[in-house]
Computed example of a mutant assay.
Amino acid sequence: MTCSYTNDLIRSVLEEENDLFRINNSSTSNDDNVLYWLEYEELDFDMIYRAAKDSNRKIFVNSYCIRKGLLRKANFALFVQKYLSKKPDSILRRHYPETHILDLSHPDYLDEALNEAYELRDVLQANVEETTDKPIPFILKASILDKASELFIFHTQAELEDFFTTKFDDDDEDEDEENNISMVREWVVQRYITNPKLLSVYQNRKFHLRVYVVAEKNLRVYVYDGILALFASLSYQNDQQSFNRLCHITNTCAQIDSPLDEEDLVKEFFTLEGLDDEIRSNIFEQIKTIVKEIFTGLHSETPIFQPLKNAFEIYGFDFLIDENNQVYFLEANAYPDFKQTGNSLSILIRELFQNVVQQIILPYFGHEQTNKDLQRRLHLVYDKQRTI
Rank of each mutant, 00 (worst) to 15 (best):
R11L: 11
D19M: 01
D19E: 14
L20N: 13
R22A: 01
I23D: 00
N24A: 02
N25K: 04
S26M: 02
S26K: 06
D32I: 05
N33Q: 04
L38W: 07
K53S: 11
V61M: 03
N62H: 04
S63A: 15
L70K: 05
R72L: 10
K73Q: 06
A77Y: 04
F79D: 09
Q81E: 10
K82V: 10
S85N: 13
S85F: 09
K87Q: 13
P88W: 10
D111Y: 10
L120P: 00
D122E: 10
D122N: 13
N127A: 03
F138K: 15
S143M: 06
I144V: 06
L145P: 02
E150S: 10
L151D: 09
L151A: 11
F152G: 04
F152Y: 14
F154Q: 05
Q157M: 13
Q157C: 09
T166Q: 10
K167M: 11
K167G: 06
D169M: 14
D170L: 03
D171G: 11
E173A: 13
D176E: 09
I181L: 08
V184M: 04
Y192M: 00
F207W: 12
R210N: 15
Y212V: 07
V213W: 08
Y222S: 03
I227W: 07
A229V: 07
L230T: 13
Q241V: 06
L246I: 00
C247F: 01
H248C: 07
I249S: 00
D257E: 12
D277K: 12
N282C: 05
N282M: 06
F284C: 03
F284L: 08
V291Y: 08
E301L: 03
I304M: 12
I304L: 11
P307R: 06
P307Y: 01
E313S: 05
Y315T: 02
F317M: 03
F317R: 01
I321G: 12
Y328F: 10
N333T: 14
F338V: 07
T341I: 15
I347H: 13
R350D: 00
F365G: 05
F365A: 10
E368D: 13
Q375S: 08
R377C: 06
H379W: 15
L380T: 01
